[in-house]
């Protein structure tokens, strides 16, 4: 039992959150020539591969929107989601020397890992806007105001999963490998490299249980079709908030054992 006047709240550590985020970013691009440009190299390379496959070998119908813009729109948020989860899983374990030596709210390690990837996401998003202009996709700017809501929803989902995974990974390092696998499968269970129209009708009910479907479709609706997201996004939003609350509660319950196990 601890007591005393000093109550440590997340808020007191706001500055640490930003300091740690900037540490991750700066360390990542230290001694690298391309630096922040790496944030767009990865989604572009991935999209180019799928563009070759799906525009030339297996033709996929993406309507009026060229395939490359169609898939890049989804690939940028997806890579933010999957990369940050894969990194969050290890965020506690890879800082074990700190966790075992100094007290600070451990969720900072998880959250800052995600924030550091958010910066990459924003850089890649700028390129997305350029692509939209180059390919003359019609733009409906007022609905763009809804993008932050989708982004917050996506971050909540990722963070909730990150809290779960990073704390369990302290006890069982298998989680790291499990998540690498899950993220690979999840990519194909989400309409990123293909349009949702090719999903057979009889699977649609199960398909929409994946909260990332509503999120990705939400991005496409706004950016490519100038529409507000449909009802499936509301479902994603509810799931994301629940996952975040559960994940964070779990994390705080188990946090005190980290230093002993590590």
């Amino acid at each position: 039992m601890y007591s005393g006047q000093q109550k440590i709240s997340f808020f007191n550590y706001k500055e640490l959150l930003f300091a740690w985020t900037s540490r991750i970013i700066r360390a990542r691009y230290q001694q690298s020539i391309l630096g922040g440009l790496w944030a767009i190299v990865q989604p572009i390379a991935t999209v180019l591969i799928f563009t070759v496959v799906f525009s030339y070998f297996l033709k996929v119908d993406t309507g009026k929107v060229p395939y490359i813009v169609f898939s890049y729109t989804a690939m940028v948020p997806w890579l933010f989601f999957s990369t940050s989860i894969n990194e969050m899983v290890e965020s506690i374990v890879s800082n074990m020397n700190l966790v075992a030596k100094i007290y600070f709210p451990r969720e900072i390690l998880v959250f800052s890992t995600l924030l550091a990837r958010l910066v990459d996401f924003l850089i890649a998003f700028v390129l997305l806007i350029i692509l939209i202009i180059i390919y003359k996709v019609p733009v409906n700017l007022p609905v763009w105001l809804f993008i932050p809501v989708i982004l917050v929803c996506q971050i909540s989902l990722a963070l909730g999963i990150g809290f779960f995974a990073s704390s369990i990974n302290v006890f069982f390092r298998d989680i790291k490998h499990v998540f690498t696998l899950i993220m690979q499968l999840w990519l194909y269970a989400t309409p990123i490299i293909y349009p949702i129209s090719i999903v057979p009708e009889k699977f649609k009910n199960i398909y929409f249980l994946n909260p990332m479907v509503g999120i990705i479709e939400g991005y496409r609706a706004i950016l490519l079709y100038g529409k507000m997201p449909d009802i499936s996004f509301v479902f994603s939003l509810i799931i994301s908030v629940v996952v975040l609350l559960l994940g964070y509660t779990f994390f705080k319950k188990i946090e005190f054992r980290f230093a002993d196990i590590i």
């Binding site: 006047q5 000093q6 030596k101």
Partner: peptide, 10 residues
């Protein structure tokens, strides 16, 4: 029981 009153640095 451990009681700590005040800002600390370890």
């Amino acid at each position: 029981k451990i009681e700590l009153n005040g800002r600390y640095s370890a």
